[in-house]
Write a protein that binds this DNA or RNA. Structure first.
Lengths: 302, 302
DNA sequence: AACGGACATTTGTCCAGGACAAAAAGGAGT
DNA sequence: ACTCCTTTTTGTCCTGGACAAATGTCCGTT
């Protein structure tokens, strides 16, 4: 039989919904209703998993689970984003012109063409302009396209992977920074998005700052040890908009307590928008903010 | 007060021990014994979290939790690996010579020196030799060093990040493969180690195969869609030795059912050693195996 | 009509304690 | 040394209850 079933752990992995939430929804809303194996353990058929993933995506757009799960099976499909995303306000997602072309290349799975087009833009705009005017808005649009279902997961992955390569390649061509602050760049354990970190690293490296890229998912306590071991002046964290916003303030506060006081803590990314910064933490709302922070640091430290 | 406490979710994130396990250990072994907040919820002091992380590392070396948790607080420190790692058999971890020098550079946090030394080796050995004789054994040794506590988490992260960059840079210099099979390279949702995938991608790209790198953590069902969308001939997965071995067989079987039959499924990495391959899945025990598999595929498909 | 605060509902996470199966260890026999 | 069987260990899953933080709703004020 060709009807694969998933146990609750597999569904948690594939949907991002915790076991607790899955059981609670079943209890409260009557969906999902998995079958049970001989041992009474839940077995989710593939179609329920598929629907759960759709529900999850709609929730990330601002819909509420109570409504979605009460809805009949078929109505879910044609549901639009409910909460305007940050950035929508001024400019509706304009797929006009060049950015749209780049997205189309990804959508056609033309990796080679995409890389060539991006290389061209890099040469034309210069690295600074490339990051600010191409990579940043493009990443934003890919995020939105994914939330609205216009991009598949694997298309977003391909975009991320190819763009990571471009940025890392560009960083490698820069001379090793020797003058600025030593900036330790990383993210906390549940945050795996690295593009934001790479963009900031590119800008900082362009300015001649000394960047220490530790990748993503560093445990809190290890960030503390790392900051000491590398004698960092600044720890810069990235939170994507997918990161659970409510946890951020607490995490930053905990990290602040772990870090020596003379090491600054900067946090940026889509997740920190509209956040009240905990004491001793500096929020970077944009790439420009990040550059400003770097320059201010240099002024302070003569 | 400077004694940060962690709730159970934070401890799960930082130790990798699930909430269920944390509660079960408390019930069974009497450790950890967190404090409680006003609401009766667990609050783990930093020192207990630290000890939990040590216990976790020793468990990964083959010790059993029952023994470790019964041990008095101080004896844990001086505990050696109990189970010989795969690969130890023939050659004890020889830190002799050049590999040792490279490790030392990481240990001194000398990113620039490490990158220069690696670039030199790359030029000297050629890309194929570099991957097989430098990157692969070095990664193995970093893994062992980390398990034995000779490497900190952030040192392993730095090694990974820098080495990823080297490999991606090298791949970018290769012409886009046009002849071989289209190989989709990725890993499943709980597997975030990407170095193995990059090594294989390098070798495949050298052979002229067409690689589609999707990064890590692709949900099972999306791999199925991606394989169709990219018209892949082969899906290649990587499981590091940190991946829970018991789940691998089941996962591969599920993925096999999701994939069209004419798409081959290859699985490699430290996690698949000593695994009985499920029907329709090809295991790659080493980088050489991977190259053999590629060549065999080409013979089969004329 | 816009704003702000009080109240109600929704929703995720945590808790306790029970059960069971897969993995590992130990032992016996070849 | 190796295989087969039994016992112990250990992780994951289950139910059902509780609660607080987030969110929505309503109402009065400016």
């Amino acid at each position: 039989m060709n009807n694969p079933c998933f146990n609750i752990a597999a569904v948690e992995r594939d949907t991002g919904l915790s076991k607790d939430v899955l059981r609670m929804w079943e209890r409260r809303y009557g969906f999902p209703v998995p079958e049970r194996d001989a041992n009474g353990e839940r077995l989710y058929p593939a179609d329920q998993v598929e629907r759960l993933r759709l529900v999850k995506r709609l929730m990330d757009q601002g819909h509420r689970p109570g409504k979605l799960l009460a809805l009949p099976a078929d109505e879910l499909a044609g549901l639009a984003p409910r909460r305007p995303r940050a950035g929508d306000a001024g400019a509706p997602p304009s797929l006009n012109g060049e950015l749209g072309d780049l997205l189309a290349l990804i959508k056609q799975h033309d990796a080679v063409g995409y890389q060539q087009a991006m290389q061209q833009r890099l040469v034309r705009q210069g690295l600074l302009g490339f990051v600010q005017d191409t990579v940043a808005p493009l990443t934003q649009q890919v995020g939105e396209a994914w939330e609205e279902g216009r991009f598949e997961v694997f298309e977003e992955h391909l975009y991320t992977e190819l763009t990571k390569r471009l940025l890392r390649q560009a960083i490698a061509t820069l001379p090793a920074g020797r003058q600025g602050p030593r900036v330790l760049l990383t993210s906390l354990p549940d945050e795996q998005h690295v593009l934001g970190l790479l963009m900031v690293e590119t800008l900082f490296a362009l300015e001649g700052a000394e960047c220490i890229p530790l990748g993503t998912q560093m445990p809190l306590l290890d960030i503390g040890s790392a900051a000491g071991a590398y004698r960092a002046d600044v720890v810069a964290l990235s939170f994507s908009s997918a990161f659970p916003v409510r946890q951020i303030a607490g995490l930053l506060q905990q990290l602040r307590m772990v870090l020596p006081e003379d090491i600054e803590l900067w946090a940026g990314g889509g997740g920190v928008r509209r956040l009240t910064p905990p004491a001793g933490v500096q929020l970077l709302d944009s790439l420009e903010d990040a550059l400003d922070a770097l320059r201010l640091w240099r002024e302070r430290h003569g």
